[in-house]
């Protein structure tokens, strides 16, 4: 992402320090992570100390300070999914990918994440890969879904 694009996002919010989180969300959406150079620009333009930006970037779950993989896998760990066997789905996926939740493989192929609730409780257990919902999973079915993403 070039500095101009970031500057445009900051301008959209009139450079208000209180818009920090909204600005970071837009950068995250565009880049799929928060590159250091972008954060420095945000700090300068919004006149917010870097220490606060780093706290926010690590406090809120939507942000990542490392690049994400091409495929973003979100396994729902909400209560409804939990009682319907979500832990076993996650376990199968960690076995399969060798990743713990929050991790990305070295080739930047897959990022494995957990989410608290996707609000599709009727379909539980659920996972979302690149925005597509896969419901009523068994561990074996979850593994099969993963194999379709290269």
């Amino acid at each position: 992402m070039d500095t101009q694009a970031i500057a445009r996002i900051i301008d959209k919010y009139h450079g208000e320090p209180s818009s920090l989180i909204q600005v970071l969300l837009e950068i995250q959406a565009d880049c799929h992570w928060l590159p250091g150079e972008a954060l420095e620009l945000v700090a300068e333009r919004l006149r917010v100390p870097m220490s606060r930006i780093r706290h926010i970037a690590t406090f809120y779950k939507a942000f990542s300070l490392v690049p994400k993989g091409r495929h973003e896998v979100h396994v729902c760990m909400g209560t409804a999914c939990h009682v319907r066997g979500a832990p076993r789905i996650l376990e199968r996926l960690t076995d399969l990918t060798g990743l713990q939740p929050g991790e990305t493989d070295l080739e930047l192929k897959v990022t494995l994440e957990t989410v608290n609730c996707l609000g599709c409780c009727a379909l539980g257990p659920v996972m979302v890969v690149n925005g597509k919902t896969h419901g009523k999973l068994s561990p074996a079915a979850a593994a099969d879904v993963m194999k379709t993403y290269e």
């Binding site: 320090p17 209180s18 989180i21 909204q22 606060r52 706290h55 809120y60 779950k61």
Partner: peptide
């Protein structure tokens, strides 16, 4: 409209206000 960035605690009203002000919740 202010989008929350993923923190359950921001449902608590004072944390929500912190977040609205652009701070950690």
């Amino acid at each position: 409209v202010h989008r929350g960035a993923g923190a359950f605690v921001c449902g608590e009203e004072t944390a929500l206000l912190m977040s609205l002000e652009g701070r950690p919740g």
